[in-house]
């Protein structure tokens, strides 16, 4: 079962890459962008058929390795 998770930077953490992307967009003529924040997306194929169990496993992975909870949040966004 494939589980999708996203990792995003917490609100108060500076995201210089997002800022530069915003500046580039601005240069391209997108003048209406308030803010850009960059994150990470993971698709993890778990050998597990129960969606709840699969989600639980990926959630544990997020806590232990995929996200650093000092600066990042994680969210399981889907199963397929």
């Amino acid at each position: 079962m494939k589980i999708s998770a996203i990792i995003t930077l917490k609100k108060d953490v500076l995201d210089p890459q997002g800022k530069v992307i915003q500046q580039a967009l601005d240069g391209m003529g997108y003048k209406n962008v308030e803010e850009v924040r960059q994150g990470k997306y993971f698709e993890i194929d778990v050998k597990e058929n129960d969606p709840n169990k699969a989600k639980e496993i990926v959630e544990e992975m997020c806590k232990k390795l995929l996200a650093n909870l000092v600066i990042e949040n994680y969210k399981i966004i889907g199963t397929q």
Binding site: L14, P16, V20, N68, V70, I71
Partner: peptide, 10 residues
């Protein structure tokens, strides 16, 4: 404690 982020000016 803490973390190390990308340098401020990239």
């Amino acid at each position: 404690p803490g973390v190390l982020l990308r340098n401020k000016y990239l």
